[in-house]
């Protein structure tokens, strides 16, 4: 089977046609194309069916989509019945979504962003930005390579391969790191911004932040932090306009 690298590259655009009907479906079909190329010469009918299946509804974290991609591609080459392949895709949606979201969106990204924020305000400048991009993208590339390889090796047994892999342990470990770096960054960012405004200004901003936390948590999604801030800004502009 050829085309692993092309499939990996195409996975970077797996959400290119994201929509509420098929979600990642078409993007998965696009990424599957290089992996399924050899099937065209071996079994053209099966190839057509495989292409159709690859574009059907699918959703998971894009960084772990390679596991489903590799597993279904191998299943197609092994002539596993189409119904079973569809069932495998459906079954993989939730675990790959939950694990990937926990690992990347709730773990690695806030952890690295927290570190970058702390580093920027402590004077690291461009080094902090470069470090953030480099570490994240190297980790993501390595995960993508691993995901496709594991999916292709495991085929229909990909569920067991995921369970035995490093992912569940990494999910458990990254959460506390993200918590720590977010906690580290917030006071540093506050001090970095408020140092230039004097005590009155600083206390005012911190008090507003406290009110913002309380009010937005009280009202829930109806009043987001963005809306709260915009309302506070409009009130300030109105007060200034009438001379307060």
């Amino acid at each position: 089977m050829t085309g692993r690298w092309r499939a990996l590259l195409r996975l970077y655009a797996v959400q290119g046609t994201w929509n509420y009907e098929r979600m990642l479906g078409v993007g998965m079909g696009y990424a599957a194309e290089p992996l399924l190329e050899d099937l065209k010469t071996v079994d053209p009918v099966r190839h057509s069916e495989a292409v159709v299946r690859s574009t059907e509804f699918f959703n998971c974290n894009p960084n772990l989509a390679g596991l489903a991609l590799g597993a279904t591609a191998r299943a197609e080459y092994e002539a596993v019945p189409g119904v079973q392949i569809v069932r495998l895709r459906t079954a993989l949606c939730s675990p790959l979504g939950a694990l990937g979201d926990e690992l990347f969106w709730a773990g690695l990204v806030p952890a690295l962003v927290g570190m970058a924020l702390a580093a920027v305000v402590l004077g690291a400048g461009w080094w902090a930005i470069a470090g953030l991009l480099l570490v994240y993208n190297l980790f993501r590339l390595a995960t993508g390579i691993w995901a496709i390889r594991t999916g292709l090796q495991a085929g229909m047994k990909v569920g067991a391969a995921i369970g035995a892999s490093w992912i569940p342990a990494a999910v458990a470990r990254i959460g506390p790191v993200a918590g720590f770096t977010a906690g580290l960054a917030i006071p540093l960012v506050a001090a970095w911004f408020l140092r230039g405004f004097g005590w009155a200004g600083g206390l005012g901003a911190v008090a507003l932040a406290g009110v913002g936390v309380a009010v937005t948590r009280w009202f829930g999604p109806a009043l987001t932090s963005v809306r709260f801030t915009l309302v506070a800004m409009v009130i300030l502009l109105l007060f200034r306009r009438i001379g307060l």
């Binding site: 918590g179 917030i186 008090a207 406290g210 009110v211």
Partner: peptide, 15 residues
């Protein structure tokens, strides 16, 4: 200052 206060509230909320 309002923008900074709002941003800090968002960061604390998210964390």
């Amino acid at each position: 200052l309002v923008a900074i206060g709002g941003a800090l509230s968002a960061a604390v909320n998210g964390a």
